[in-house]
Design a protein around this nucleic acid. Sequence first.
DNA 1: GCATAAATTCCGAAAAATGGAATGTATTTT
DNA 2: AAAATACATTCCATTTTTCGGAATTTATGC
Lengths: 253, 253
Amino acid sequence: MNELFGVLKPLGLLEAVAGAQHPATLAELSASMNVPKPTMHRWLGSLENAGLVQRTPDGRRYELASRASKLAFSILSNKPAGAIRHEILLRVVQEVGESCNLTVLEGTQVTYLDRVESKWPLRITFQQGSKVPAYCSASGKLFLALLPPAKRDLILRDLKLERQTENTITEKSELIRELKQIRQDGYALDREEFLAGLICLAVPIFQKKGRLRSCVAALAIQAPVTRLSHPEILTKLPVLQDAAEALAATLND
Amino acid sequence: MNELFGVLKPLGLLEAVAGAQHPATLAELSASMNVPKPTMHRWLGSLENAGLVQRTPDGRRYELASRASKLAFSILSNKPAGAIRHEILLRVVQEVGESCNLTVLEGTQVTYLDRVESKWPLRITFQQGSKVPAYCSASGKLFLALLPPAKRDLILRDLKLERQTENTITEKSELIRELKQIRQDGYALDREEFLAGLICLAVPIFQKKGRLRSCVAALAIQAPVTRLSHPEILTKLPVLQDAAEALAATLND
DNA sequence: GCATAAATTCCGAAAAATGGAATGTATTTT
DNA sequence: AAAATACATTCCATTTTTCGGAATTTATGC
């Protein structure tokens, strides 16, 4: 990736903070970006001042702040890359005949970034921007499964598994087992765990970070069980995975 | 939203481009951000050069480019730990039914890092970032109590105990006795010492440092005495302590 | 094809960023 | 408990950018 010059150098810092696995200290950032400490100090001060970055409570490390999330959402809900992604969703809906959505994880909830509805009269209408608990949705469980273990534990630790339907997973041990299975399969199912009668299938969208890759978004289809039952919905897997790769390409080009 | 200064001004431009309904022309952006055209031209050039922004096919308008998406996904997938903490506060409020806040000690004052209000019509409305004297608040006294003795003495030496209410502790000897009690209990109370009618309960959030641990932040609930009186508020202790541990976990990942 | 508006380039003046060194502060080791 | 180390922050003379009015070029609309 080409470096950021001139006025934009501190923006490279935002990328660095966003890409870090753990909140980093000034010294670490200074070293990793090869920038003198006083300069780094000033840059971080600016970002902090702007509300894009904040210090951890102990005051020694830096992490993203709320304005960064706001910026991220306004970027993603905007064209043109958004339009390209939307086209891909349209194709998926056309090919599998069911509603389809693109989601990201926000804390313990899954947020709909984009969504295309199927043409069927019977369909579930979520709207873009709405949120759903992670532990009882296909995308959500997928995110939890693919998160770095430390971060996953952090979220699981404080998670309340409230029953939504007969099938909702309400035991942590069972959820942990399910996540393990998901990691093996590479996809996640929601077997009427959030809404009775609604079944979902989700696949991950990876972003390469150096030689690592992290799951930054998920692509899922939703269908009434009456139209697509459990074994059957898996036949749509190839289409989804194909689309997921196309979506990933918009990130990794 | 506060403006972006200095080095970050072009980042404000990125926000503007992201927030625009349609790809905007240089002149539009120039006008909406109140920046001379040559300057805007240079800024857009930088962003374009960096791959954050691109021109529409006709070359006259600017829209977001792929690197912006990449950055956005990076931000969202690196869920700020601060947001995780915020969710923990939400849970606490949900469970105890009273306003709740996360504070740190800054000199002789307590600063609100984050705060979630209760749903009651009668409630105390502090805002994030506001400050309160340490000697007459639950969190503040907690910090003082748990500080290393040397540092505590330094602060206590030239602390002026100004009366805020009937109950404010205005004698140093009494404050010192109170701090000792707090160390024993592991929690601190504010019995209408800062605001008449307001009672608070605070618990420490520890960060491990080698084989030591230090109190870097505090979690507290605030309630009108009419709703939660002194012995009664202590029943909320377990919830608070549990949340404090969850919060502590977000510090060491 | 001409008038008008927008985009781009120029460049000297002005402002801001830079980073080595010094100072302050916290943490670890002896 | 004290010294040593590592880290964070401030200072400030120097250098490097940025800034934007004016001029020039290019595109648009009538």
